[in-house]
Write a protein that binds this DNA or RNA. Structure first.
Lengths: 194, 194, 194, 194
DNA sequence: AATTAAACGAGACGGTACGTCGAGTCTTATC
DNA sequence: GATAAGACTCGACGTACCGTCTCGTTTAATT
């Protein structure tokens, strides 16, 4: 019983260790299912089958479907969201676009926040794993290009614009768009915004 | 058979007409369920019970859960989204906040776009009923306060900022926030944005 | 409201008179559905459609599916079950076989008695319309060929044998079978049976 | 998937074995529902609830309502239908009466043959599990008391008489009745019947 | 090498909701 | 007042996933 725990200890636990191959296969399968079917269409049974793994093996690691999906999305998001050393505005916007454009992210991001609307545990998890990393990235931009601006506002403006472009209006988030968003922040920062 | 059709005809159709009371009761029940349980927690069975109506009566009008929810959300959104005669920037932002803050909208908005990500029919429906009205509202702002700006960009910036504030970071979308967003657009518009 | 009544009065009732064509069409359709689909497979909706009649028209004449089926079966049974003037044993058995062999009767007879097992109103109806006519027919045989026998016993033996042959074992109820059954009664009657 | 199969193998199958307690509870509940509500009144939902079991657990074992009922009826019938060592005519008739008089059998027997009229798969099943055992029992009688008679005829006569008495005319199948039926066969057998 | 303890595959289990179907009733407009 | 059409309530259907539970079977680390 008791799922999830055995991750963060160095001491070898008794009994057969969990298969790292299963971890990988499950997360990969989850990302594929999300990309193809979206969050609602994803089933734990389907993930397990695709991963060549028993359902128990999934539930031993993740308590529920939402947890599993959070981890899969975090994987898809963390590479692009790596803190930029530069703090260049356009690079930050470009990173946000890259994060949301990954197909498994498109299929799951909004659904996770939709569920979080009503499930406080999931909300906390999703804030910690998805919102905060993005926030940290945008903070770099704020420091460099709009040092006097309210960081919360800049975050909502920049991340909101990208999210809305990619997942709501679904128009291309191309280079001109990236430049315009970065430019907007710079322009607004001039007379002090906030 | 064949659900939904009998809406837009003036000619009296044969047979017993659909009960308008049932329409109302179903939509009201849907809004209540969305506010309390969110999209994933809403069940057609629950809506029907709460509306004091048989499940078949729901399915006769709406093919799928998503369709029903679109209509319920549109109802919650259309009053605040009424086109502003003025085009005053802050009024527009305030209207967007009001639209998304309605509890049934909070519980459903993201979920609809999440499903739309993977269901083209729903995507079209949701664009027509939810995205376009918001877009028209923001267009007023563009015309008056940022006539040279790219309307698509302004829409993503303004609607994105509100959406992100209300549904993602879930911080208060209060008057200062409203002013700041409007101010940002004005500031960015000065040197021509777009 | 109030279905069924307007059959047995000579006085012309007010309003539009019931269509005799509808009566016929409904009963014919019922017999066809019974023959093709059996009792469980028959639906009132299907009968109405096939009869080219609205469902209301069916329910105005018969309170329930079982009632309708009783009448349809009685129609299929009453011609063969006409009282034999002769009282010839083999003719009686042959008549019983003919009554049960009609396809709409095969599909419905047992089902009606199955339901009657648990529904006293149906049981009364089915006894009056189906059991008693058969009983009267067999009584003729008893009088002539087994005058000292218990009529109840002869009825159960003869009608039971035919019923079992046609609807349970489903072997051919041919002329040899008819002769053997009649012969059995005669043989048993000799030393007085009952 | 694939219901029913895992009955007749000795080799232990993979996965959690089916609960024998559930088997028992389901069949018991089925017999109770049949006795109280008859075949038409029995619902899988009701059986599951009464058995304290999920609906899926029923459907995993039996494909359809009719299959489940066959098994329940066979259980109610097999004790009385145990082959008589003696071959005493009255004992055989008494056994048939006892088999059909069980309340779950009364409520279901005719309904099964009614459905079998139109469903060949059910017909085969019902013949194998219900008709043949009764036939074997009556065969004993034939051998001893009517060795020259056609066994098919004797079966239809004896089983038919009992069935008709118990389930159609619904008059008491008491000792006098039992004696009379046995006596009829004996009398008819004298001059050779068949 | 034998033991131990947990992971693992398989699949049954209790639940809950799905979307459909049929029974029987009710409500229109038309005949 | 009968009729056609079709909406309505109710209750069950059989299916699909959820997340949990038992099985029998590996697989490491420990004795």
């Amino acid at each position: 019983m008791a799922p999830v725990p055995p991750a963060p200890n160095g001491a070898p636990r008794p009994g057969r260790p969990r298969s790292p191959a299963a971890d990988r296969a499950i997360l990969d399968a989850t990302r594929q299912q999300l990309a193809e079917l979206g969050y609602a269409g994803l089933t734990v049974e389907g993930v397990a089958t695709r991963a060549g793994v028993a359902k128990t093996t999934v539930y031993r690691r993740w308590t529920a479907k939402a947890d599993l999906v959070v981890d899969a999305v975090v994987e898809g998001v963390q590479a692009p969201l790596q803190p930029q050393p530069s703090g260049d505005g356009e690079a930050v916007v470009r990173a946000l676009v890259a994060a949301l454009a990954a197909p498994e992210v498109r299929g799951a991001y909004l659904a996770l926040f939709a569920e979080a609307q009503v499930d406080p545990v999931l909300r906390a998890r999703v804030h910690e794993r998805l919102v905060h990393p993005a926030r940290r990235l945008v903070a770099a931009l704020t420091h460099v290009e709009a040092p006097d601006a309210d960081p919360d506002l800049v975050f909502d403006l920049v991340a909101g614009a990208v999210l809305h472009r990619v997942l709501i209006t679904a128009r291309p988030a191309d280079e001109p768009f990236v430049r315009q968003v970065a430019q907007t922040i710079r322009a607004a920062a001039r007379p002090a915004l906030g």
